[in-house]
Design a protein around this nucleic acid. Structure first.
Length: 107
DNA sequence: TGACTGACGCCGG
DNA sequence: CCCGGCGCCAGTC
């Protein structure tokens, strides 16, 4: 799998995150590891930083519920509009995190 | 080829 | 809860 395709996998997965829910970089990496064979929260973070502009990037946070450095304000704004509850600027992962269900769609 | 870096994650102090 | 250290993967210098 080429780097470009891997980027697409990440971006496409981010697009499927439902409004009002979020996924951590690690969860994304973990999920993609199953379909692409690779995984690395770091890599996902790098990809989001460089190519996340076209997807709901604000629905991606770190495992602690922290918002992306340098974009906390923007992300908090967008998340608030989707009804996501924040506690001290952090997403409450315990109740807001999401993970794909499909295991039937092959892919 | 080796060192450095980064929208990460986990553990220990 | 904050901070530091170490592991991690890939891209860049």
């Amino acid at each position: 799998m080429s780097p470009e395709e891997y980027r697409e996998q990440v971006l496409q997965l981010v697009e499927r995150i439902p409004a009002g829910r979020v996924m951590s970089y690690g969860a994304i990496a973990e999920y993609l590891a199953d379909v692409s064979g690779r995984c690395s929260a770091r890599q996902v973070g790098t990809i989001m930083a460089r190519y996340g502009g076209g997807v709901p990037w604000h629905r991606v946070v770190n495992s602690s519920g922290r918002l992306p450095p340098g974009h906390e304000q923007r992300a908090a704004q967008l998340l608030a509009e989707e009804g996501v509850q924040l506690r001290a600027g952090r997403v409450i992962m315990q109740t807001t995190s999401w993970y794909p269900e499909d295991h039937t769609s092959g892919r």
